[in-house]
Design a protein around this nucleic acid. Structure first.
Length: 876
RNA sequence: GGAAGCUUAGCUCAGUUGGGAGAGCGCUUCCUUCACACGGAAGAGGUCAGGGGUUCGAGCCCCCUAGCAUCCACCA
């Protein structure tokens, strides 16, 4: 052991430089064909800025799984990449330009895109540095970007194929229009928020009459686009009105009154204005009755030329001005407060305008059906937790067509050209030959269109590559529930359509990280946590342990610094335990073969505990139950290994028996070595540091080693009763001293009593531990207790009693009370145990092992009860 | 309106086919013993939201109620 660990865990010293070394030694390279393949693709972060703690959560889980699989002997590929993030990135770059007083239109498309690419390079760089700090074992030789050549080709391939199959079409539909970004949005990019708005009631006077009917609206400015008033045919109030005309108070136009079942008699006045170009339901009515669809707004949300004097006004200004004017004309009846759901743009937070516009759509019904059918097969994607499958299938059922065109510049240009004269559409990878006669569609595709292809486009699709063959379908997708619709669902139907396979076998959904008060982290609240600051302060290992080992699948978790500190403390504990081991192995230590049968009881005990831990960890890693894994590791390392084994081993290490010492050293080495691998997926840096130090070699890397095997030593049914008994006895002694206000290190005499030769032998073998940790200076072992002997009496269990002799110094009254309490406790146990065992249904139905276990407990309680009862009777 | 969650110790949360209520932090008492005081030892603290049901047995399964938060849909 030429290199020693520092006395205190220093995360900065441990983590600095390691990542580069891993890269230099190709630790993250994939492609070893002698092993089975395994693959996780990173959910590509947006190149809009820095990674936040949500990314770190995702990535910690993915990295943990990849490292685990590597140790398990897989050729595990963790594939990196980033997303161009159309709207988001363009908005950032536009905002930056705006500070200089420049708009994208000033620059023009080409110059503007140069600016965006520069931005992309800058932030890609930042993201790379962040991944390094997180310690992600990404294979950078396979890194992809959604706008790179291969992926762009995949996008074109998909677009053209779907177009030719009739699953992509261009049409004039009501879409969600963001007047700030000046682009169409898909339905899920609109966030509905309950908003207090106003309901305006206007008089619509009948043509040639003074009578009127009342129409209510929340958006008066759209009245310039009205084409009729609709009532329900069953509405008696308006029976006679149908077929007549009323005057639009906004512009004096005559509007026919028509009848349609769509109108809800109960709502408002029962008379609805119909604005086909600015409302999806009105649009449907206009289609049904072949009505005009006049548009009254410009793309930037100002009123257009059909609005007369309101032309050029912003829609909200127009609303107020128009209402004033109508009021002056005596046609305003009332204004009421009205709570309704208003749609806001996810990115710009502008109020979204339903707007009639020419856009490209993906026809969802056949694709959704394919995905839903697939989930009925045995080959279906497994969601963890499985309730998210329902979220997915519910959404896919009855889903509307996906608007995929965006009036932006940053993104995949739609591969469609329109003939200047004939209007003919050409869709293809290349432009038509007589390009001078054609104009390419200026729009780009929704950024999620390319993300949807990510699991296979990154592996080379549409080419039939070796990687695709080897790593696809990918093994698990890890992401938050907030993007199931945006991304997960779309990957599934696109993958099924184009590869005829699922994109991933498992889908692991995690929750969101909230602040310590349970609020969502957001820029406006300023409550976001920068993962890089946390890493600087506590280390990536501590942050990763917190993120992976304390979050239940699918549930949100609160961030708090105390929890990170607790994680740090745990690592510090591991660090110091490692220090202890290395100090006690010595500089020239070379492990020799562990001869299991020659080990002391404590050595066998820790190996039994290790075996059980490995078994449980394996089982729960495969179920993605990381909290359970974390609990097993924590308890094993802190309680079993640090609190008990290291302490007990001190006896072996300081003893005179060289062979015992050497074997215990071997076991310490073996267990610590196993621990480093067990924690490696969670804490890659510190585990590497300890591993290399333990092996006295900084040119070997833990990730290339093998995951520990349960029962490499010892058998499954090995009993570790003798050490459990020793531990129990030590606890009893400590408790007795504490209760009796004795110092913990007060010397004490004890008498251990058992009729079993085997148990007496076990006590004799392990007497040194009792002496050292119970501070026992006089230990005697007997077959039978002379019940008249004065002292504090205990039944330790397992047929062993203990007496702390007090030779006349005992307060008999107190001792009697203590024993009575103990009897009461045992009586309750006996009652419970008997009740269960006397139950025929239990004995018949419960697993045999469970029944046996209960019987053994009952026997033990009985013997303890008997011992104490006898002793108590003698005191009377 | 529909769906899927959550409610367990003072706080934050685990609790894996139903079989003796757990952890971290905080709190009390004691201990600077040669891995660790970012530690060790011993403790206190819970009618598992409430009510009903199934079962020999329920924190866990079923039903109802209340509170909290989420997603989807939506009427002008």
């Amino acid at each position: 052991m030429s290199k020693e660990l520092a006395t205190k865990y220093d995360h900065l010293a441990v983590e600095n430089g390691k990542y580069q070394k891993w890269l230099d030694h190709g630790c993250f390279k994939s492609g070893d064909k002698s092993k089975p393949g395994y693959c996780i693709v990173i959910p590509p972060p947006n190149v809009t800025g820095k990674l936040h703690i949500g990314h770190t959560t995702d990535e910690s889980l993915q990295d943990m799984l990849t490292r685990y699989k590597r140790l398990k002997g897989f050729d595990a590929l963790y594939l990196p990449g980033m997303d161009h993030a159309g709207i988001a990135t363009q908005a950032k770059v536009e905002a930056r330009l705006r500070e200089k007083g420049i708009s994208r239109y000033d620059l023009g498309r080409e110059k503007f895109l140069e600016q965006v690419w520069a931005w992309k390079d800058e932030y890609a760089d930042t993201i790379h540095q962040q991944w390094a700090k997180e310690g992600l074992c990404l294979d950078y030789s396979k890194e992809r970007f959604t706008l790179d050549e291969g992926l762009s080709d995949a996008v074109k391939e998909v677009f053209i194929t779907l177009y030719n199959k009739g699953l992509i079409y261009r049409g004039k539909r009501i879409i969600n229009w963001d007047p700030v970004q000046r682009t169409a949005l898909s339905n899920i990019e609109v966030i509905y928020e309950e908003t207090e708005s106003k309901m305006y009631y206007f008089k619509y006077v009948f043509e040639g009459s003074k009578d009127f009917l009342t129409v209510a609206t929340t958006r008066p400015e759209t009245m310039f686009g009205d084409v009729c008033v609709v009532v329900n045919p069953k509405d008696k109030r308006y029976k006679s009105a149908v077929g007549k005309k009323v005057i639009n108070p906004a512009n004096g136009d005559l509007l026919p009154i028509i009848a349609d079942e769509y109108v809800d008699i109960e709502f408002g006045t029962g008379a609805m204005k119909c604005t086909p170009a600015h409302d999806p339901n009105d649009f449907a009515i206009s289609e049904k009755y072949h009505l005009e669809k006049p548009i009254c707004m410009n793309p930037d949300g100002t009123m257009n030329e059909i609005c007369g004097k309101y032309k050029g006004m912003d829609r909200m200004v127009c609303r107020n001005t128009l209402v004033d004017d109508i009021d002056k004309a005596g046609l305003l009846i009332k204004i009421e407060k009205h709570i309704n759901q208003v749609g806001y743009s996810e990115r710009s937070h502008a109020i979204v305008e339903p707007y009639l516009s020419d856009q490209w759509f993906v026809k969802m019904e056949p694709l959704a059906k394919q995905a839903l059918d697939f989930q009925q097969t045995a080959d279906k994607i497994k969601f963890y937790p499985d309730r998210f499958e329902k979220i997915f299938t519910n959404w896919m059922t009855g889903i509307e067509d996906w608007c995929i065109s965006r009036q932006l510049w940053w993104g995949h240009r739609i591969p469609a050209w329109y003939h200047k004269d004939t209007g003919e559409i050409h869709v293809g990878k290349e432009a038509p030959k007589d390009i001078e006669n054609w104009d390419q569609d200026p729009d780009v595709l929704d950024t999620w269109f390319s993300s949807a292809l990510w699991p296979f486009s990154t592996l080379g699709w549409p080419a039939k590559t070796e990687d695709l063959e080897r790593y696809f379908p990918t093994d698990v997708l890890v992401t938050g529930y907030d993007i199931i619709f945006f991304w997960v669902a779309r990957m599934i139907f696109q993958s099924l359509e184009f590869t005829k396979q699922k994109p991933f076998k498992d889908c692991l959904i995690h929750g969101l990280i909230r602040d310590s008060e349970g609020r969502k982290m957001s820029k406006s609240l300023g409550n976001g946590i920068d993962p890089m600051e946390v890493i600087d302060q506590y280390g990536a290992d501590a942050l990763r342990w917190f993120l992976t080992a304390s979050a239940s699948p699918g549930l949100d978790m609160r961030y708090s610094e105390e929890k990170i500190q607790a994680a740090w403390n745990f690592i510090n504990k591991i660090w110091n335990a490692s220090r202890f081991v290395m100090l006690n192995l010595g500089d020239d230590f070379k492990p020799t073969e562990i001869k299991y049968n020659e080990l002391t009881d404590v050595d066998k005990w820790i190996i039994a505990r290790l075996n059980k831990t490995i078994e449980s960890v394996d089982e729960n890693m495969d179920k993605y139950e990381f909290v359970v894994v974390g609990t097993y590791l924590y308890n094993f390392i802190w309680d079993d290994f640090c609190s008990w084994y290291i302490e007990l081993a001190k006896v072996n290490l300081s003893g005179a028996d060289f062979k015992v010492k050497k074997q215990t050293q071997n076991v310490l080495y073996y267990v610590l070595d196993s621990i480093t691998k067990l924690i490696h997926p969670f804490m890659p840096f510190v585990s590497e540091e300890i591993y290399q130090t333990l092996h006295n070699n900084d040119q070997i890397f833990i990730i290339n080693d093998k995951w520990p095997k349960a029962y490499e030593y010892g058998a499954k049914d090995d009993s570790s009763q003798s050490i459990e008994m020793i531990i129990e006895t030590i606890k009893r002694i400590r408790n007795y001293k504490s209760e009796n206000k004795m110092l913990p290190n007060a010397k004490i005499a004890i008498k251990m009593v058992s009729k079993s030769l085997q148990r007496k032998e076990a006590i004799k073998r392990n007497a040194a531990y009792l002496k050292r940790f119970g501070f026992v200076d006089d230990l005697s072992i007997d077959d039978i207790l002379d019940k008249s002997e004065d002292g504090a009496f205990f039944s330790v269990g397992n047929g062993i009693d203990m007496l702390i002799p007090l030779k006349g110094n005992i307060d008999t009254k107190v001792e009697k009370e203590r024993l009575k309490l103990e009897l009461l406790r045992l009586e309750a146990e006996l009652k419970r145990s008997n009740a269960i065992l006397n139950n025929k249904a239990f004995v018949a139905k419960a697993p045999a092992a469970k029944v046996e276990q209960e019987k053994a407990k009952l026997a033990d309680y009985n013997s303890q009860y008997k011992s104490i009862k006898e002793k108590l009777d003698l005191l009377k």
